[in-house]
């Protein structure tokens, strides 16, 4: 059987909220190392990869690997029933048809029990090449969300260009064009707002803003986001889960998006 308790139900709630609009159904693979989910959106343009290591759980028991086929919008509905400071316990039998979800308030005076029907989801697992990226930009996740939202006003495709000086987001559409440049700033008052750029060579790629917008729904998870790019490969937009700032968390939520290329 599988049983795991997370001290903060809100963390799981934020994770599922962040992916439920991009992916409807997904298999959560549970093993002795933790919980993983990998799923593509229906058009095979983007991929979500969620990793929750056992060390972020208060209690974790998994006797045998289990696959939990989950309808994510329905899971999100149940998670919304948790209180802000509740813990959450997930339980499933080896061949069970349901996922039990139990919320407990801090003082354990309120216990809520739910069951989510599991599904058989036919999804193939993809091998993501383990690669070093040419460019890694770390910035405020709220700032990234704001830029993506602002770019969307003007068009549906955003160019992200990076040089040592800064990272430039550009868009053009029927009503005009715009761009926002963030300069590399190591000495800002608020550490969370710093923009740091590690790069080998300047890179510029084009991406669909619709998908970048989906990814920024993960902003409440972490004040920092890491954006990784290399020429002609999918961009990675990664958030730590259950960690602080951009230090290594006990989990991660990464989004991959294929670029747009000139025909």
């Amino acid at each position: 059987m599988f049983e795991a308790t997370l001290q903060k139900a809100s963390t799981l709630k934020k994770v599922i909220e962040a992916i439920k609009d991009l992916v409807t159904d997904g298999n959560i693979e549970v093993s002795e190392t933790g919980m993983n989910l990998q799923a593509m959106d229906s058009s095979h343009v983007s991929l979500v990869s969620l990793v929750l290591h056992t060390d972020m759980f208060e209690h974790f028991r998994c006797d045998r690997n289990v696959t939990l086929g989950i309808n994510l919008p329905n899971f999100a509905k149940i998670l919304k029933c948790s209180g802000n400071d509740d813990s959450v316990t997930l339980k499933a039998q080896d061949d069970g048809e349901n996922l039990a979800i139990v919320f407990e308030s801090e003082g354990q005076e309120r216990v809520s029990e739910f069951e989510l029907k599991l599904m058989d989801i036919d999804a193939e697992s993809l091998g993501i090449p383990d690669q070093d990226y040419n460019t890694n930009v770390k910035m405020s996740s709220a700032e990234f969300q704001r830029i993506v939202r602002d770019m969307t006003v003007l068009g549906d495709t955003c160019s992200i260009g990076c040089t040592k000086e800064g990272v430039k987001f550009s868009v053009s559409g029927d009503l005009g064009q715009g761009n926002i440049t963030l300069r590399q700033t190591n000495s800002v008052d608020k550490e969370e707002e710093a923009v740091t750029i590690e790069m080998d060579e300047p890179v510029e790629l084009n991406f669909a803003l619709r998908y970048l917008g989906f990814f920024t729904k993960a902003s409440p998870l972490c004040p920092r986001v890491t954006i990784s790019m290399s020429p002609d490969v999918p961009i990675v937009v990664a958030y730590n889960v259950g960690g602080e700032k951009d230090t290594e968390g006990a989990g991660s939520l990464s989004f991959y998006l294929a670029p747009k290329i000139d025909e």
Binding site: V45, P234, A258, K260
Partner: peptide, 14 residues
């Protein structure tokens, strides 16, 4: 004109 690439051309099934 730009074309959206599919992830299938980057990531292969395990």
């Amino acid at each position: 004109k730009q074309k959206q690439k599919s992830l299938d051309s980057f990531f292969k099934p395990k």
